[in-house]
Amino acid sequence: MVATKEFSTVGPDSTVIGPSILISGKLTGDEDLTVRGRVEGELNLSKTLIIETSGVVKANVSVRNAIVSGVVVGNVVATESVELTREGRMVGDIRSPRVIIVDGASFRGRIDMGNAEPRPQAERPATRPVVRPAAVRPATLPARPAPQAAPARVMAPAKPQPPPVARVEARPEPRVEAKPAPPPPPPQPVLVGEAGKKKVLVKKKK
């Protein structure tokens, strides 16, 4: 979210490295940086790094967000996210809680998302615990009477075995219904969803 917001606000006051510029050395800063030229050495930003299609970065990069549409050779450490767009090419290791690689991107290297939990944890506890008490408790309460009482009334054909199974299944289902936005909890769909959002924004920008 933050990344997309900043992406759209890239304007005249943010830093741009033009296509014919070569910077070799150490670059640090607290603002968004758009690279259309070349940066070699070391790059540290507390905000978003955008490497456009003409941009080449041969550096060890440490940023909050990185959006790579150009070329990166080197290791990237991002505190929030790294996104390799359709045109992005990268050789090096990525360490970031969120890594998005879209179709068409080329990448060689290792990816470390940490425990694979920090990000999901950050998102899920926000939604899940809220949902769980709300959904599971009322869901299980009506669900229990349902398999117990319903088989006698309605579920005549499927009743004999299912009760325990039906109860187990009844829990996730109401949870999903109560939380309509992100259907399944696993992390992949979340990333796909965000990739989709960003992709749209990238297109808008261009």
Partner: peptide, 10 residues
Amino acid sequence: GSSIVIDGEI
């Protein structure tokens, strides 16, 4: 930009 520090060659 104003918050950027470059140590090297441009």
